[in-house]
Design a protein around this nucleic acid. Structure first.
Lengths: 268, 268
DNA sequence: CGCACCATTGATATGGATCAATAACTGTGG
DNA sequence: CCACAGTTATTGATCCATATCAATGGTGCG
C-alpha cells in the first residue's frame, strides 16, 4: 500500500526519532510528526506520494481546491498571491523540513495562495482528506498542526506589523536578526538562503530598495558580500529586536545588549 | 463548579443549538462550539468566567503569557501591535461572537499582540490550559479551532497582499465588499461598525488618507454619509473582487457583474 | 456652553517606486 | 576554455503617492 520512497522516508523518520529520544534533542524541523506514534505516522502517510519537481513549477494555483499537504524533503518553495496586473505579494519563503498548504486545507473552499517551486525540489504529498481525517483520530497530530499554523499566523502578524509601521531598513534588520537566530547565533555569518528579489518582495519592498538598504546597513557594522552577511559583533542586530523575538535570543538581557534592556521597558 | 453567568450562557447556547438543528441554519458566529456535544461544552466551560470591561481597557499586553481564550459576548475588541515609538498596526477588529487569543495560546511563549477593548464589552474567558487540554480530548473541538485560526490566517494573508500590492482605494473597496457580503448582500447599505481611524489603521493607511479615499470613491457610485455607506447598485463593488472572495458572492458569475467574469479569466 | 475627541480638508515634504542603464554572475555550447 | 545569452543585482535620476503637518469643522458629553 505505502509508496516505496515514502516508506523509506518513514523508516528514516523513525530512526532519527529514536536517536532524538536518546539524545533528548528536540528537532523542530519535523514538527509535523512530533510525538506521533509509529502507527500514527504509518496511517498518516499510508497513501502519500513522493514527487520531484523542477524550479519554477507552479504546484498550487490561487483558486485551486487544495488536494495535498506538502512536506518539503529538499529544495525551496514560495507561497505567494498574484494581483490582477501581475504584481505579487510573497507570504512565505520555505526550505526543507517545512510544510505548506497545511493551513489552506482547513480553510474550506479554494486556495487563496499559489505555491511555486523556486528550485528543484522533492516533496512529500499527503492527501488533504487523509490529513483532515487524521486530525479527528490523533489529537496529538491536531495539536502539532495547531502549533505549526499558529506559528505561520504569528509570522504573518509580524509581517503586517513590519510593513505598516517599520521602515525598509528596520524590516531588513529584523529579517537578518531572525535568520541569525535561526541559523545559529554563535556564528557571525548569516547566509541569505533565497534570491534577494524574493526576500525583498517578502519584506514588502522593491529589489532596488532592498539593494540600497543593504548598502546603508554596512555603516552599522553589518558587512555584505553577495549572499553572505558578516556581523561585526553579536549585538549589532539588537537595535532591530522586538519583545517577541527577544526571549528567543540567547543574549537576551545580556549586559552587552545595547537595546534589549532599554527597549523592553518601553513595553512595560 | 461552573460560574452562574457562564451556565446561563451555556444554557442559551444549547437552546439556540437545538433551534438551529431544527431549522438547519448553520450559525457561523459561534463556530467555536460547532458540533460539540453538550457534555463537551460543559467540560470546556466548567471553569470559565464572565467578565465585563470598559472601553479602552487593555486586556492583553504584548509580552504577557496568555492566560485565556476570549469569546466576545457583547462589545468590540481590537488586536494590535505597538511599535517602540507608539505607532500601531491593527491586526483584527472584532465584534460579538468572535474569539481572540485563540491562536496565541498555541504559539507557546509570550503574546505577540495586545488586545484592547474599543467599547464596553462582556467577555467569556476560557482558561488557556483548559483549552489546550480539551483539544486533546475532543477532536471536533480541535477541528473547530483549526478552522477558526485558519480563517484568521487567511485574512492576514489578504491583509498582507492588500498592503503590498493594492492602492488605498482598492483596499477600501475590498474592505467595503467584505463588509457588504458579511452584513447581508441584499441591502444596499453598509455600516462602518468601527471608528474610521481604526479601520484606516487596519487597512494600513492614515485617517487622513482614509477620509480622502472615502471622498474619491463617491464618484464610483458609493455614497458616504457619516458611518453609513450606500451603494448605487449591487455591482459597484465588483471592481474590488478577487478570486477568493468571488465564490462567496451571491452574484458570482452573474451576467451583470462587470468584472467577476473577465477578471477570473486572468487567473486561468 | 465649552471641552474633548474625531473627522475632514488643505498645503507641503519625502521616501520609496519607477524608469533606465550598467554590471556581475550563471550556465551553455562551440 | 572562452564567448555569449539570459538572469539577477546594483546604481543613478526622476516622480508621485501618501505621510506629515497644520487648521478647521462637527459631534457628543459633562
Amino acid at each position: 500500500m505505502t509508496d516505496k520512497p515514502v516508506q523509506l522516508f518513514i523508516d528514516d523518520l523513525l530512526r532519527r526519532k529514536k536517536l532524538r529520544e536518546a539524545s533528548k534533542n528536540s528537532d523542530e524541523a519535523t514538527y509535523l510528526f512530533h510525538s506521533l506514534s509509529e502507527s500514527s505516522i504509518q496511517a498518516l502517510l499510508s497513501n502519500s506520494i513522493m514527487q520531484n519537481c523542477a524550479g519554477g513549477k507552479h504546484l498550487v494555483q490561487q483558486g485551486d481546491t487544495p488536494t495535498h499537504l506538502f512536506f518539503i524533503i529538499k529544495g525551496g518553495i514560495k507561497t505567494v498571491r498574484y494581483g490582477a496586473d501581475g504584481d505579487e505579494a510573497t507570504i512565505r519563503l520555505l526550505h526543507s523540513g517545512e510544510t505548506f498548504m497545511d493551513a489552506v486545507i482547513f480553510m474550506g473552499g479554494k486556495s487563496p495562495i499559489n505555491a511555486v517551486a523556486i528550485e528543484d525540489s522533492s516533496l512529500l504529498m499527503i492527501p488533504a482528506e487523509t490529513v483532515r481525517r487524521h486530525v479527528l483520530q490523533d489529537a496529538q497530530f491536531a495539536c502539532n498542526l495547531l502549533k505549526i499554523i499558529t506559528r505561520h499566523y504569528k509570522n504573518a502578524m509580524q509581517q503586517i506589523d513590519g510593513i505598516i509601521t517599520k521602515t525598509p531598513m528596520e524590516r531588513l534588520g529584523y529579517y537578518l536578526l531572525k535568520q541569525h537566530l535561526e541559523q545559529g547565533s554563535d556564528s557571525m555569518d548569516i547566509a541569505l538562503t533565497f534570491q534577494k528579489s524574493m526576500i525583498a518582495n517578502h519584506l514588502g519592498m522593491t529589489p532596488e530598495t532592498f539593494s540600497r538598504v543593504l548598502n546603508r546597513i554596512k555603516k552599522m557594522g553589518i558587512y555584505v558580500d553577495q549572499e553572505k552577511i558578516t556581523l561585526r559583533d553579536a549585538y549589532v542586530l539588537c537595535h532591530f529586536c522586538d519583545p517577541d523575538t527577544a526571549h528567543t535570543c540567547p543574549r537576551f538581557n545580556a549586559d552587552e545588549c545595547p537595546l534589549c534592556n532599554d527597549n523592553l521597558k518601553g513595553y512595560h
